[in-house]
Amino acid sequence: MTVGTNAALVSDATIEVRGVSKWFGNKVAVSDVTCSFGPGITGLLGPNGAGKTTLLRMMMGLTSPSQGSVSMFGEDPRRAPTVFKDVAFVPEDDAVYPFLTARQFVRYAANLTDGELGESAVTEALRRVEMLEPADRLISDYSKGMRQRAKVAAALVHNPRVLVLDEPLNGTDPVRRASLIDLFKELAASGHTIIISSHVLQEVERLATRVIAMVDGKLAAAGDIHAIRAAMSDIPYQVRIDTDTPRQVAAALLSLDTVSGIDVLERGLRIETTDLSSVGNALPRIAADLDARVTRFEPVDESLESVFRYLVKASR
């Protein structure tokens, strides 16, 4: 895994982001990000507020960068709308027309993108997201997951080479989620560039082999998802353990190689470990040996945000 260097760039890029920053007043939303995207699925990963949506909006030309530049097929999307013949965007927002049916919505997208597209393209797009059956009901009657799928159908109707999706699996049930993931993988396998932003690591792991991770508007990590996962294994997690015999349990835990620090508290311990599972496995045995009562075993700060903060710190 590399951080903020060549792993953020691909040789066969369809979208290039060069030194892009965006600030709103005093608030920096994106800071000096350079990366590129090519065929296959790239996950844009980061906690909420990391700047993913702002970066996607700049890539699509919806927001102008305060600094730096973005190109899509070599063109600035703000100056050359023709690039959208080959690009589609699925925003996180409920950007749908509630007074239309899904079929009308997808047909509207088709008419705005390629006047030659017929009803068969509309039906095919709806079929791919499993929306044929409710296609003639008003969108206002749909669940969040159905609205998401209608948006994906509208994005797919002209078979774009680049598909950019902002949190596309939000609100979808597990079955539909799995079929959407299969659909994105199928598109990627046929040479499409798919960019999927998400704040859920497990979701991105299922989807993407390549990841661009952001935190606090900066590029935190880039590269292969497995390498990032491996890097995370070195991150010290803080764990809170509540027990009636904290000193004895602390002494026993110190014998574990993976425990790097212990604070004894009034009714428990706060330990630092690089391997949560080994501590979790050892603790019942220690408790049994010491006849201690353990009432809590909980990572204190395991959020994605803290993980990425660590990666950013590690890269400096």
């Binding site: 699509m60 919806l62 023709t82 927002d93 950007a95 705005l112 390629d114």
Partner: peptide, 15 residues
């Protein structure tokens, strides 16, 4: 307000 403007502007059509 409804965030549907990008549905129109991200198209290969003249503004």
């Amino acid at each position: 307000t409804d965030k549907t403007l990008s549905f129109l502007t991200l198209r290969p059509i003249s503004r």
